[in-house]
Design a protein around this nucleic acid. Structure first.
Lengths: 257, 257
DNA sequence: ACAGTTTTGTGAGCCGGCTTACAAAACGAG
DNA sequence: CTCGTTTTGTAAGCCGGCTCACAAAACTGT
C-alpha cells in the first residue's frame, strides 16, 4: 500500500534544452508544446508570437504512474499543464491516510496557486497513470498578464470557479452523514463527467472506493457499504471502478437528507 | 435559536441617489464612501478619478445585527466591502445546523465570486453585529480591471489566497478527530489575529463555542469539552467568548496527533 | 494459464462524538 | 438591581462509522 516514493523529483522550469527526463515514446513523439498549449482553454486565444514565447520558457516532462510531481514545501515557481494522463492532488494525514483535494484531467491546469505568491506548495501532486506535464515559469505568465487583460481575467475566473467548487464541497461534508457525503460527491463528480449511456451517466474519472473515501474523509469499507445500499435503492449502478448514476434526482434527495 | 429572517433584503446596486435605507447615525455620518474605499487595501492605490467613478456606482447600506445581507439563489451582481461591523458567511444544512464558511472583518471584501460569473450566491452573508456595507456593481470593477492590470492582479491574488486557506481547512477536517479539528481551527484563526498580550495571543474574532462548532462541523457540547481539556493541558486559556493561545507549538502537535 | 496485485464484499466489536436534558454563570438592558 | 438572554458546563445513553480480519473476485503481466 501507499508506496511513498521520496520527493527527489521536484518539477521546476530550468532551460528549454537540457530536458534529461524527456523520453520520446509513442505519445510524446506526437506531442509538441504548441499543440499542448492550444488544447488548454486558458491559452487557446493566444497569438502565435505569445504562444511561442510561452513555449520557450516551458519544459515538458514525463512522470510514470505513481510518481510525485511536486510535494509540500517544494518551491512552486511554475504553473503546470497536464498534457496527458491523470493527476491527483492530495494531502497525507499524520496517520497516513490520503485526503484527495482534486483530480486533474488532460488539458487542465494545476499548481496554479504559484501565481499568487511564492509560498511553497502545500499538497502532493501525484500521477495516477503515466503522465506528461508541461511546466511554465510564473514570470512568463506575469508578462502575459501585463499585456493581455483578457488573459488575466481568465486566470481570475479559473481561481474563482475552483474556489466555489471547494467551498461547496466543504459545506457538503460538514455535519453530513457518510451516506449524504457519498451521494453528494457523486453528484459533484457527475458535473465534470461527459460520458453518457442513454439516460444514465457514468462518473468519468474511474475511482476506486478507496479514492472516494479520500474525497469525503471516510473509509473504504464504509464507502463500499453505502454504494451497495444506493445500488439496492436503484439510484446508481456500481461496477469495478465504475459508477453509473441512474436516478440523479433521487441522489440529490439523499444529500439533502 | 436561529431566527431565520426571510430573504426579503437582497443587496444590489441601484442608483447612487435613492438609498432609502441610508440611516445617518453616529457611524455613517462620519463615514463616506471615499474613506471606506481607501481603507480597503484592494482599492488603496486608485487614482482620485478612478475612486470617484467607483463611488458613483456604489451604494452604502446599513444592516442591523442578525440580518441577512444576501442569501443563496440571490442574483449576485455586486461585490461587497464591509465598512463597519462583522459579517459571517454561512450555509444551512437540511436539519438546520449552520456551517460557517468564513468571517469577514472591517475593510475586507466579500461576495467577490460575483466577479467570476453571474451565477447566484450559494451561501448566506449575515451581519453578526450592526454593520454597514458598500456594494459595488461588477461592471464598474470590470472597467477598472481593463485599464489597470495591477488591480486585476490584486483580485486574482485575493481569490487565490482565500482558496488556499479553504483548501487547508478542508484537509484539516477530513479524517481528523474533533480534538484535532479544534486545535487546527484555533491555529488557523490565530493567523488572522493581531491582538497580543505579551507572549500569549488571543483569537480576535471573539467566537462562541457554537460558532467554533459551525466552523469544524461539530457540536457545541463537544467543543466546550475539548476546549476544557486543552485548557487543563495548559495549551490555551478560555473565557467567555475569548480564547488565548498559550502554547502555540503544543497546539500544532495536537493537530498532527 | 498462473501468480501476484488490486479492488470489492462482509461481519464482529468497539468508541468517539452526537443527542438529550438540565443548570449555573455571565452578560445586557431597562 | 432585576429580569431575560446568551454562553458555558456536565453527564447519561445511544449509534454511526471506524478498526480489524478475512476472503472472493477481477484484473495485470508473463
Amino acid at each position: 500500500m501507499l508506496e511513498q516514493c521520496g520527493s527527489e523529483s521536484s518539477i521546476e522550469v530550468t532551460t528549454d534544452e537540457d530536458d534529461e527526463s524527456y523520453v520520446p515514446d509513442r505519445s510524446t513523439m506526437i506531442m509538441n508544446k504548441h499543440w499542448i498549449l492550444k488544447r488548454c482553454d486558458l491559452f487557446e486565444k493566444l497569438t502565435d508570437d505569445q504562444a511561442e514565447r510561452l513555449e520557450r520558457n516551458a519544459s515538458l516532462r514525463n512522470f510514470p504512474k505513481g510518481s510525485i510531481i511536486y510535494a509540500p514545501h517544494d518551491p512552486g515557481r511554475s504553473v503546470l499543464v497536464l498534457a496527458e494522463g491523470r493527476v491527483k492532488l492530495k494531502g497525507i494525514t499524520p496517520d497516513g491516510k490520503e485526503t484527495i483535494v482534486a483530480f486533474i484531467e488532460e488539458g487542465e491546469l494545476f499548481g496554479e496557486l504559484a501565481i499568487v505568491d511564492d509560498a511553497p506548495r502545500d499538497e502532493f501532486a501525484e500521477s495516477v497513470v503515466d503522465s506528461t506535464v508541461l511546466a511554465i515559469a510564473c514570470e512568463t505568465l506575469f508578462e502575459l498578464v501585463d499585456e493581455l487583460p483578457a488573459f488575466s481575467f481568465k486566470v481570475t475566473r479559473l481561481l474563482g470557479l475552483r474556489r466555489r467548487r471547494i467551498e461547496t464541497r466543504l459545506r457538503n461534508i460538514l455535519f453530513r452523514s457518510n451516506r449524504q457525503r457519498v451521494a453528494g460527491i457523486l453528484l459533484e463528480l457527475l458535473e465534470a463527467s461527459r460520458e453518457r449511456t442513454g439516460e444514465e451517466r457514468r462518473i468519468t474519472p474511474r475511482l476506486s472506493h478507496q479514492e472516494i473515501a479520500g474525497l469525503i474523509g471516510s473509509t473504504r469499507e464504509t464507502v463500499t457499504l453505502v454504494l451497495g445500499q444506493l445500488q439496492l435503492e436503484g439510484l446508481i449502478k456500481v461496477g469495478r471502478r465504475s459508477i453509473t448514476i441512474v436516478d440523479r434526482h433521487g441522489l440529490s434527495l439523499v444529500t439533502n437528507s
